[in-house]
Design a protein around this nucleic acid. Structure first.
Lengths: 104, 104
DNA sequence: TCGGTTTACGTCAAACGTAAACATA
DNA sequence: TATGTTTACGTTTGACGTAAACCGA
């Protein structure tokens, strides 16, 4: 009984920020995308996770509980992945080429 | 540092079954799809999760560790979702209509 | 009006299925 | 040969961005 996983990710970020806009920035998508992902999750669960206030969203009681569980699960995956991952996120991009080409 | 989530799901199922074919059946996709999802995850992690044997796959040591963590995380989401979900997976589809229409 | 969320619509890429290739008991 | 995995290729569809609408302080 797993929900759409991408919507779960949007929810987790939005619940942390209590803002779709901030969540969108974190996820490098538009706030529109976050809005739809969360609506999708709410439809899947058939309940509201957020109350929409004016210029703000707040978690419902059910949303708050779900957030705790989801954040825990994601954190577990995150830790396991960091521990395992061999390809450390390099900041540097190495480019090899011929000097003749480089000179142009 | 989260991996592609859909590939994580394929991995979890394949690790449980120790078979891409069985995992595919569980996920209602083709075994080809599972194969590619797992390759994607292995590329993301830059390590092998399975050793490919003839007509079988076995988890590497790293794969085994990862499986435990991932299964735990998924299980946590699963439980939280079941607990919360209002729309219980009904087997029955209720259709309302006017009797005049029904009679046709 | 202003700042955040929602929605309509067209686009794109990730994920898919089919089918063929591959590998080994 | 038979069974499970991999790969090539074309297609589908879920997720997206843009932009407009909406909504209440």
């Amino acid at each position: 009984m797993l929900p759409p996983l991408s919507s779960l990710r949007a929810f987790e970020a939005a619940a942390r920020h209590l803002s779709f806009t901030k969540a969108a920035e974190e996820l490098f998508v538009t706030q529109s995308a976050v809005s739809r992902q969360i609506r999708l999750l709410e439809e899947f669960l058939d309940l509201q996770l957020f109350e929409r206030k004016h210029r703000a969203v707040v978690l419902t009681a059910e949303g708050e509980r779900y957030r705790r569980d989801v954040t825990g699960a994601f954190s577990q995956v995150d830790i396991a992945t960091r521990r395992l991952r061999r390809k450390q996120g390099r900041e540097v991009l190495n480019i090899q080429t011929y000097t003749t080409f480089t000179m142009r």
